[in-house]
Write a protein that binds this DNA or RNA. Sequence first.
RNA 1: GCUGAAGUGGUGGAACUGGUAGACACGCAGGACUUAAAAUCCUGUGCCCUCAACAGGCGUGCGGGUUCGAUUCCCGCCUUCAGUACCA
Length: 944
Amino acid sequence: MTNRKFPYLCTRFRNSISMDYQFAAIEQKWQKYWAENQSFKAEANSNKPKYYVLDMFPYPSGAGLHVGHPLGYIASDIFARYKRLKGFNVLHPMGYDSFGLPAEQYAIQTGQHPAVTTATNINTYRRQLDQIGFSFDWSREVRTSDPSYYKWTQWIFMQLFNSWYNLETDKAEPISALIHKFNEAGSADVKAACDEDVRTFLPTDWATFTEEEKQVELLKYRLTYLKESTVNWCAALGTVLANDEVIGGFSERGGHPVEQKKMMQWSMRITAYADRLLQGLNTIDWPEPIKEMQRNWIGKSVGASVKFKVENSDKQIEVFTTRVDTIFGVSYLVLAPEHEWVAELTTPEQKADIENYILQTKKKSELDRMADAKTVSGAFTGTYVINPVSGERVQLWIADYVLAGYGTGAVMGVPSGDQRDWLFATHFNLPIVQILDAQKDIDQQADATKEGKYINSGFINGMEYKEAVAFLNNWLEDQGVGKAKVNFRQRDAIFGRQRYWGEPIPVYFKDGLPYLLKEEELPLVLPEIDKYLPTETGEPPLGRAEGWKYEDRYEYELSTMPGWAGSSWYWYRYMDALNNNEFASKEAVNYWKDVDLYIGGSEHATGHLLYSRFWNKFLKDLGFVQEEEPFKKLINQGMIQGRSNFVYRIVDEEGKGTNKLVSYNLKKDYKTIALHVDVNIVENEILALEAFKKFRPEFADAEFILENGKYVCGVEVEKMSKSKFNVVNPDVLIAQYGADTLRMYEMFLGPLEQSKPWNTNGIEGVFKFLRKFWRLFHNEAWEFTVSDAEPTKAELKALHKIIKKVQDDIERFSFNTSVSSFMIAVNELTDLKCNKRAILQDLVVVLAAYAPHICEELWSLLGHKDLTTAQFPVFNPNYLIEDEFAYPISINGKMKMNLNLSLALEAKEAEEAVLANEQVQGFLNGATPKKIIFVKGKIVNIVV
RNA sequence: GCUGAAGUGGUGGAACUGGUAGACACGCAGGACUUAAAAUCCUGUGCCCUCAACAGGCGUGCGGGUUCGAUUCCCGCCUUCAGUACCA
């Protein structure tokens, strides 16, 4: 009936219509309405329970959003809208992580100020986000590059600078408390997370220290500190990088080589919080993989440090071991080739060998070194060291399997208990000593067992593992040659970046020492510079800022903060985004407390998510916030990969491309090369030939070898990128199908947490569903018509089934299954020809979180106002109660037939009824049932 | 190597606590409507055997096990993806 009347449906752009589901007009209308009425503004104070739904805010890149970006936002938006309908006061904000490298790189190339680029990109993002119909409270928008925001990032930096970590109270305290301790009792009583080289002094000494000496000493305790340290230097980017920004020896951004370099740098003493960061993981509802990644990153290992005296020298080499009990089995010691004592401890005879080995090591890139893990290599220094427990002298080697950056850069070699040591000892003919009677076949391989009793182990002979460890730790400490120790893999986080487009560090230098600005002088605004490059003398870009001096005299810190600074506290700013006097008011923080649900990608596991937990714990220690952990529940949405399409160009004898293209399944008969083709001109792998000729003008006259009259393209899953022509833009899909369809389709694609390639095939199904839903409310002439008649049992059942299903699905983040259920419900109601207000009204509310625009429109057509303030319908289980059930009857576990039985029947009556059935007897074919299993409301199984 | 996740039709996926495997959708095939195409609607669609129906057999990566009954639990193996890596 609609066919002839609506020829517009021929085109793929279906929105120029008169009466059918006009998604474009509807969506614009309600987006405007929501914006004008501030429909999603969270209440500052409310009797309702609070619920905070947070998305990881985006870096506004120049490329805009592709179809993969909104996946998590759609899920969180559905959740936020659902919680509002369930009576919560929901905070669902959005903002931009707007400091960062790409805008600065662009500025270097074009001279355009990063602030301009950033503002343009933000506008694009905002336009794209608005089109999708998100229920963000934009009145709380934050931008990390905005001075009114980074003022507070700088303020937090100042709090960190003014704090130290007291290990006795296990929390951060003001630096004034430390100064007080120094005044009262000197350094003796102080147990702090601090630098290794702190001085020991009496209160009387402290009193005699000059101001400069005091500041130098205090810097060793501050939670953010300046120190000469080995850093990851990326020459191509002209900046240092944090460990989590370096992947396999290359920069995360851009993939440039990274080298180790000693530099004066700002660091954050995150290691002070290592244990609390680890413990906190047990209290939060996060995906196990993320927790595991953080645990590995923190890398706690419990063991002991032991000092081995160097023969004929005062030096003692400290090693860290997790198996101090195996110390009597030590047959050599190894230093990392980069260890600072290597040259000094090499004998003249071995000098050539060692130097040659170091040279070889340096030549190998980090990647080679990893790939080469199985080759044993090393060199003998010629020096011997003394085993402190046995007095035995063992050789000192260097080898690249020992890493300078972990532990002390030195290890003890116990070949009988460690496979790596075993390989090393075997290769270089070093002794292998059995130390436990339970060790087996140690001539074949190492045996790391902790079972049995010690042998060949001096004073621990006959002991068992636990006893030996405790005894040795005490013994080592008594002798002053070692102690029990906990080692962490995690290092303090380098905080300075030699870049322009970041937060200025609110510090100036006087006599070479760093001092903080006064609080009222914040924000320290990023000055204008002429060029976004380092100065001729190698200073960071801020060195170019003319006349940029504190009190016109003192040099400011020229590094800026890293990308993670602004994102490490932003969820608090949303609580009170316009506050000029505090980062957020006490009342706001006390009310909103923490994030109830956080949705974002797993790529932030060891970066943002760890730093945020660190700053949060710090702010809690100082009493600025309430909760120990910022994000109660975390969900990682899967990555949307690209799905590329290919055409196959036939090449001639010489390998030159011809003008002929062959369809996918016929290409085996030809010599071809694959070419990427724009996925937007391919539908269900069938190429649109005319569009292709336009897409690639060189093929304007191409000839196609078709199969069944069609050109079939090849498919491959790759990263979504412009160069692969596999980017799908949400704007295009919204123009074609509308935002409600896009939202539901993204959810329909599969489980939220699963990574999957984007495939637009199938979006039609969701679009058809929404039209069918729309049609429930309209008659044949597309006039809005609902009936006030009493709903039937079947209609109520369909409704309450979907109420329950959606409730359950949303609570367990299974959005894909509720989309299916909506389709089922609408199919059922269509079959029932239901247009009853009593049913449809509730259905609109149930669907509202997923497809908010169409639902608002129908809600208003039903005569209501503001769906955002509606209440989620209450599920009534009575409507789902059945008195009959079609029991599946199976014989020996194989389903044979269904039989309708009353649900009132108990086992005995049911069995009788089943056996009395003729069809059942037919299946039994004379056999006598041995046993009948009857599970009420589920199944009947006959065992023969 | 280690850690984690996952393997189900032509495709995306469903089956939540051991109880009818393949919901829902795409695609495909056939049909209705149309001068025709598109769109829309209807029917069918895991595989095998059979002209077909009835019926039957097989089937959730592979091999075993527990159970009346296993996609689901247990043991062993294979594959894929992600993270991490000579961590002492």
